[in-house]
């Protein structure tokens, strides 16, 4: 069972901007203004894909540009955050954010006006 929370204009954005690329890194992560915290409340690990669905008045939009990228296994009691650049207009026109695990289970949380 996953708990999902989304935070638009997250306070992590300036931290990612400022701290990434340290110690010889060559790139920095700017403008990742949406943070999605995914917490595993169950007793078994859950693997989610590296993307999400955003549903709203414009239909369903698939977003695959999450950071960190790729599938992610989240252990029981663990929390994993994902970040992306989110257009304010798209966000405010959306009402539901959905992650899907590798078994096809869907986990939702309110988005934008939701």
């Amino acid at each position: 069972m996953l708990s999902i929370k989304a935070f638009m204009n997250t306070s992590t954005e300036p931290v990612l901007n400022f701290r990434t690329g340290c110690c010889g890194g060559s790139h920095r992560l700017f403008d990742l203004n949406l943070e999605i915290q995914v917490k595993n409340l169950g007793t078994k690990p859950v693997t989610i894909s590296g993307g999400l669905e955003l549903e709203g008045v414009r239909g369903v939009k698939r977003i695959d540009t999450l950071y960190p990228p790729g599938p992610r296994e989240i252990g029981p009691g663990e929390i994993a955050s994902f970040y992306c650049i989110m257009d304010e207009t798209l966000w405010s026109a959306s009402h539901t954010l959905t992650f899907v695990d590798k078994e096809g289970n869907r986990y939702r949380c309110p988005a934008g006006r939701g």
Binding site: S11, T12, P14, V15, Q37, Y67, I79, S81
Partner: peptide, 16 residues
């Protein structure tokens, strides 16, 4: 300070 926004424990624990 440069970073002037508070953060939560969940933000810290969930970060990369």
């Amino acid at each position: 300070a440069h970073l002037t926004k508070p953060v939560s424990e969940d933000q810290v624990l969930g970060a990369p």
